[in-house]
Structures are given as C-alpha cells and as structure tokens.
Amino acid sequence: MIKTMLTIALISFAITIAIATVRIILGPSMPDRVIALDMIGVNLIASIAVISIMLKTRAYLEVILILGILSFIGTIAFSKYIERGVIIERKRSR
C-alpha cells in the first residue's frame, strides 16, 4: 500500500519534469525557460526525498539541501542577467 503510493508520487514527479522540459523547449521568452528550470529543480528535490524513502536510506538527505541552494542561486543569477545584462555588479565611483 505505502509502496504503491510512493510509486504513484514518483511517477507524477516524473510527469511534471517531462512537461516542464516541453515548456523549456517551446518557451517563447527567456523568463519562461528560467521558471521551468526552477520548477524542475524543485521537483528534483521532492523526488530525491521519495527515492530516499524507497531505498530505506538517510544518506540522500544532504542532497536536498545542496540542490535547493544550487537551484536558488541559479535562478537569481539568471534573473540578474536578464534584467541588467550583467551578473556581478561593480560600483564605478572612482
């Protein structure tokens, strides 16, 4: 019973990632693609949590934190680049 529920949840995360990949390929503008990439990262976090239950191990729980941080920083860098054309701003007061 529990294993069936976990499998259904894992399949639905896989469907989510597949359809978000379609949006990345189709997406008319850059922010569409970045939103879909952010969604893929967030769903990878959830599917890793489910996989760590199914494999009966706790070793994958660090991966959740690392992927969360990497996905957030990637989205921030892309949004800075789309808005201003640079990622790291330097002050030119001298």
């Binding site: 939103i35 967030v42 989205t75 800075k80």
Partner: peptide
Amino acid sequence: LSVRLLLGIVFVFLTAPVAGHLIVRAAYRS
C-alpha cells in the same frame, strides 16, 4: 528526527517565492 530535512523545508519555503518574484520582475523590466 532529521534536522537536515527540516532545514530543507525552511530553505525551500523561504527561497521559492523570492526566486519567483525576482524572475517575474526581470521579465517585466526586459
């Protein structure tokens, strides 16, 4: 009681709306 999982919950809860707001702001400005 997994502290790492709790940290992950707090981090996703804090950062996902901020990332969404920033990318929509960049979309409107561009």
